[in-house]
């Protein structure tokens, strides 16, 4: 690995200075993704573990999660928010050795949807808080997913989960080859005052969030067409048709419940 410099800034000012001085850098959170890259084409790593960004706190019903919070932290926090959905989803983010170090911020920013976090945050209508030397920016996760490249180079500092889902009872289904495998399909249904939202995500694709309408033909007329946006890939976890069948099974299970 041809990394020439390794920095651990102590505060945000130092971080901004280092990232400006070293344009060819990679931000390292837990590192489980960066370390897997065979040859990161960067000469500088900026490790953000000393920037704080660690806490989980409740403010007016909203949940603020620091970007450096690990999945293990999220499980151990035992949040009652949304029926414990955050902890439940986090418990599937890799085996324990990964969860102990991988962070929610790193997972969102790594650019891969091969974890369970992006659909979770999309379902919860989370807000991502970015910082740069020009200030702080609040970005809805849906905008982030739609236009990811806009946010490269910015530092994700925290994630806010809105209070509206505080008392929601979630429906959550996950299908994977083995328990520790990355998901073939994730299916989350949350109820809010607008009605039920279905969020579908899967390995290597963008998740989608769909408003449910109590229509007999919802599956055929709405859910399946919208799944095209997910762009299921033909990969080792199955052909797109198979992944669609899994979503249908998850939908049926929700409907029967």
């Amino acid at each position: 690995m041809k990394v020439k410099k390794y920095f651990r800034p102590r505060d945000l000012n130092e971080f901004h200075r280092l990232s400006a001085e070293n344009p060819d850098h990679k931000i390292l959170a837990g590192g489980t993704y960066v370390a897997k890259m065979k040859f990161p084409k960067v000469d500088t790593i900026i490790d953000i573990q000393d920037l704080g960004l660690k806490g989980i706190k409740e403010e007016n019903g909203d949940i603020h999660i620091g970007a450096n919070v690990t999945f293990t932290d999220l499980i151990e926090a035992e949040l009652s928010y949304c029926g414990g959905l955050v902890g439940q989803v986090s418990s599937h983010c890799g085996p324990i050795t990964i969860r102990n170090i991988a962070t929610i911020g790193g997972n969102v920013m790594a650019g891969y949807h091969w974890n369970d976090t992006t659909p979770l945050l999309l379902a919860l209508e989370a807000t991502l808080m970015f910082t740069s030397d020009s200030g702080v920016k609040a970005v809805p996760v849906s905008s982030f997913i739609a236009n990811r490249s806009t946010y490269t180079g910015l530092l994700l500092t925290s994630i806010i989960l809105p209070s509206k889902y505080k008392d929601t009872k979630p429906f959550y289904k996950r299908f994977a080859r083995t328990r520790s495998d990355i998901p073939t399909s994730i299916f989350i249904v949350l109820n809010s005052e607008e009605g039920d939202h279905i969020t579908v995500g899967s390995a290597t694709v963008k998740p989608v969030r769909i408003m449910y309408s109590a229509d007999d033909e919802f599956l055929i007329n709405t859910l399946l067409p919208r799944l095209n946006e997910v762009k299921f890939m033909d990969d080792l976890r199955g052909k797109p048709e198979f992944k669609e069948k899994i979503v249908i099974s998850q939908y049926r299970e929700w409907k029967e419940k």
């Binding site: 990394v3 390794y6 651990r8 390292l28 590192g31 489980t32 960066v34 370390a35 897997k36 790593i45 490790d47 573990q49 293990t72 324990i96 050795t97 990964i98 102990n100 170090i101």
Partner: peptide, 14 residues
């Protein structure tokens, strides 16, 4: 906490 030392940069352990 149990972690994989192959996934950690030495600098992270400092």
């Amino acid at each position: 906490k149990l972690v994989n030392s192959c996934l950690i940069f030495a600098g992270q352990a400092d």
